[in-house]
């Protein structure tokens, strides 16, 4: 079954189109990373899944239920870490969890949940005194109540320190191992790379790419960046490098040359430079990070069909 089905969804707020004709499917059991810069339409999409806002056009189904008409049925089976929430200042962490357990008619143990999200010992404090990271952990704990079939996490690592972010990833992996589908948004790529099966990239309200991480890498023209420190660059040298098979973008500034290319074209690039009389003083290679892909997708407007 499909966990999330979005078909031709458009959301306009007055004159502003937040999301334009978005179609997206997330299969059951997948860990799906929803990427994009702030304002790309990620949170609006998630808010539609949760029925916080209603789409202007299109159909949205979550776990087989209509996201608006059957929203309560949807929310009985999902766990949510929303974006821009605040906790109830006067209630303790434990009372928050108890409220979630009662609301979902679940039978979880609040202490076990507190421990799982790293809040054991803080459960009897009022949540109003929690730091941003602690509040984030608490709400993640609420999201885990009742072993949901689908976890929707909107920017889950906001406010977390590196250790907290790692724990968050561990929990995502554990939940996926249990069989849950995980849909989370982020503008921080390291996390997505580490846990996702597939990613979708949003830009200006449109989905510009949707693929596995490996697929995304292959889809771009280059997956290695060669940085060469050079002396004089004679005329024609750059053109010769650009002509090599497997070489993508070549940029030159000062004594630095940046060449995107296939891994196996690296030696050819270096030998060609030397043949053309370029003084190669130093070089280093780096594998293209998701960051590069991200930049490529969100600024160049290149589109990849999934």
């Amino acid at each position: 079954m499909t966990a999330i089905e979005i078909d031709g969804m458009t959301k306009r707020f007055g004159d502003v189109t937040a999301v334009r004709e978005l179609s997206l499917e997330v299969e059951e059991g997948e860990v799906f990373g929803f990427l994009g810069p702030n304002g790309a339409g990620k949170s609006t999409t998630i808010n539609v899944l949760l029925d916080f806002v209603r789409p202007t056009e299109g159909e949205v189904r979550v776990l087989g239920h209509d996201a608006h008409d059957e929203s309560v049925a949807v929310r009985e089976r999902i766990g949510v870490l929303p974006e821009g929430f605040s906790v109830y200042d006067r209630l303790t962490g434990r009372q928050h969890l108890e409220f979630a357990i009662e609301s979902k008619a679940a039978s979880d143990d609040p202490d076990a949940l507190l421990e799982r999200v790293g809040l054991s010992g803080d459960g009897d404090r009022k949540a109003g005194g929690y730091s941003k990271g602690m509040a984030q952990r608490l709400v993640l704990g609420m999201a885990l109540v009742g072993d949901p079939d689908l976890l929707i996490l909107d920017e889950p690592s906001t406010g977390l320190d590196p250790n907290g972010a790692r724990q968050m990833r561990d929990i995502v992996r554990e939940e996926a191992a249990r069989g849950a589908t995980v849909f989370f948004s982020s503008h921080i790529l390291g996390q997505v790379e580490a846990v996702c099966d597939r990613v979708g990239i949003m830009r200006n309200g449109e989905l510009v790419a949707e693929d596995s991480i490996e697929g995304l890498r292959e889809a771009t023209s280059a997956d290695t960046v060669l940085r060469v420190t050079v002396g004089e660059v004679p005329e024609g040298a750059l053109a010769a490098v650009r002509g090599i098979e497997g070489v993508g973008e070549v940029t030159h500034s000062g004594d630095s040359l940046r060449v995107s290319c296939d891994s196996d074209a690296k030696t050819t690039v270096l030998s060609t430079l030397e043949e053309r009389g370029v003084d190669v003083r130093d070089f280093e290679t780096e594998e293209a990070s998701l960051e590069d892909l991200f930049m490529a997708y969100t600024t160049d407007g290149r589109e990849v069909e999934a």
Partner: peptide, 14 residues
């Protein structure tokens, strides 16, 4: 305004 409504409506309350 505070955002706790999102917490409330993330749970299965209509």
């Amino acid at each position: 305004e505070s955002g706790s409504l999102k917490l409330l409506l993330s749970l299965p309350h209509s």
